[in-house]
Simulated assay, not measured.
Amino acid sequence: MTGTPEIPVIELVQPMPGFPELARFALVRVDDTGALCSLTSLDQPGLRFLVVPPATFFPDYAPEVEDTILTDLGSSSVDDLVMLCVLTAGESLASTTANLAAPVVLDIATHRAVQVVLDDPQLSVTTPLIA
Rank of each mutant, 00 (worst) to 15 (best):
P128L: 10
D31A: 03
S124Q: 06
L106Q: 08
M16E: 07
T56D: 09
G34K: 14
A55E: 13
L93S: 10
T126R: 15
P15N: 06
P63H: 07
A23N: 13
A102F: 12
L106E: 06
P17T: 13
T33D: 12
L81Y: 03
A89C: 01
R112P: 02
Q122P: 01
T33R: 14
L39S: 07
L129M: 11
L106F: 14
F49E: 10
A89F: 00
D80P: 02
I69P: 04
A101G: 11
A62K: 14
P121S: 01
G34A: 08
D107F: 07
G74S: 07
L73P: 10
F25L: 11
Q122W: 06
R24A: 10
S76L: 13
V125H: 08
D67E: 14
I69Q: 13
D119G: 02
A89T: 04
L27A: 11
R48A: 15
G90L: 05
L123E: 00
R24S: 14
A113V: 06
V114K: 15
T71Q: 14
V52K: 03
E91Q: 14
E64H: 13
E64R: 14
P121K: 03
V52G: 04
P103S: 00
L93N: 08
P45Q: 11
L93V: 12
V52A: 13
P20V: 12
R24P: 00
P54E: 05
P103L: 01
A62M: 12
A102E: 04
N99I: 11
A35H: 12
A23P: 00
T33P: 00
A62E: 15
M83R: 12
G74F: 06
E91F: 08
V114P: 02
A35F: 13
V82Y: 06
G46K: 10
N99L: 08
A94H: 11
A113L: 05
D72V: 02
T71W: 04
H111I: 01
A23M: 10
Q115C: 12
R29C: 02
V114R: 15
L84Q: 12
H111F: 09
V65R: 05
D31V: 01
D43I: 02
A109P: 00
L47A: 03
S77R: 13
M16T: 11
G34V: 11
T33C: 03
F19E: 02
P15L: 05
D67T: 09
T56R: 11
D79C: 02
A109N: 11
E91L: 15
V51W: 05
P20F: 12
A26T: 13
P63E: 07
D31I: 05
D120G: 01
A35P: 03
L87K: 04
D79R: 14
S77Y: 12
C85P: 07
G74K: 04
T96L: 09
L87S: 09
V78P: 01
D60C: 02
